[in-house]
Design a protein around this nucleic acid. Structure first.
Lengths: 170, 170
DNA sequence: GCGATAGGTATTAAGTTGCAACCTGAAACG
DNA sequence: CGTTTCAGGTTGCAACTTAATACCTATCGC
């Protein structure tokens, strides 16, 4: 299949376009979720997702090509191929969960099952959130964009709270 | 524009399909990022993203329709329309950041600018990660899928570590 | 060998995207 | 107060992507 779309990356210095190059495609996240749920084979994905064979084939190939999954013949049955998440693929778990939790929060009647839990106490994980480098949770008002050059600098007097830039979306 | 695609939701009980219904479309996340960077107007998005007018128009309409952004005439100049993130839109920040951080980690030469920082000390935020309900950070080996019915139950003897299901992707 | 199974490819219709040209209503200008 | 400019679109069309379905190829179990 061709690829004459606008690259979508290099638009600004930000990793988002490069992430979306693979994960922005229709079905990529659904395939990833299925993989996180323990699916490993072509026909399993096919049955679970209700996707067309050719599209699934193409998407798996792209995920493999981008190092998100790896593709291996099974030694005991050489018809079978095993698709498995790589470390790079596993690293997408927070993004996938954040998106899923958002969908659950605002979607219609989606009580979500199964739920990702802490093995230690069997309780569901916390909502994915933003934390400071030292682990403090951060609310939107405590956030601001900074140029790389200004990291760690005192840009505004602490008492001058009203003038602080913050996320300029609030 | 028509909408005869497979719904992509209702496939399983999980919020992901419903999240992807809007955010899975090409450009949606890029528009969101631009909005988080403080852009509010049609022509601003157009210039920043290099997207076609009709597509931008369509995507903004869909974001508004889904309650992610709101659209308001500016009272001082009635030609201008202001697009602004709603609470629902702001709630996508963790998902957007997780995706962006992943792209930065694995993308080619993307040092990312500007960077989201804590107003308190001007330091960049921590990587988006998974935490237990009590705030402890959780590694992949400490995670397992559970049916809603089994939340909080002791499913496996603590000493029987090898048999524990975990993420069955590891 | 022979049917079933796993994982694809090929063909074609339908839907989506991107480009460029055009439209509309509200400022701004003189 | 007529004309120009600006903001925010819409329309038409060609190119591309997706989906559905049929077909292909290598194992495997018997």
């Amino acid at each position: 299949m061709g690829m004459l779309r606008e690259p979508l990356d290099e638009i600004q210095s930000c990793g988002l376009p490069s992430a979306l190059e693979v994960m922005g495609e229709r079905w990529s996240f659904m395939i990833l979720r299925a993989a996180f749920n323990g699916l490993h084979h072509f026909e399993e994905f096919l049955g679970e997702l209700g996707i067309a064979r050719n599209i699934l084939s193409n998407r798996l190939a792209r995920l493999v090509e981008h190092g998100i999954m790896k593709r291996e013949h099974m030694p005991d049955d050489r018809r079978k191929i095993e698709y498995r998440l790589t470390a790079k693929g596993l690293d997408l778990l927070p993004a996938m969960l954040a998106l899923r939790q958002w969908g659950e929060k605002y979607g219609v009647g989606v009580p979500a099952n199964p739920v990702l839990c802490d093995t230690r106490d069997g309780q569901p994980i916390a909502p994915i959130a933003i934390h400071a480098h030292d682990g403090r949770p951060l609310a939107p008002v405590e956030l601001e964009w900074r140029n790389r050059a200004d990291i760690g600098k005192a840009l505004h007097a602490p008492e001058d709270d009203a003038v602080r830039p913050r996320l300029n979306v609030l």
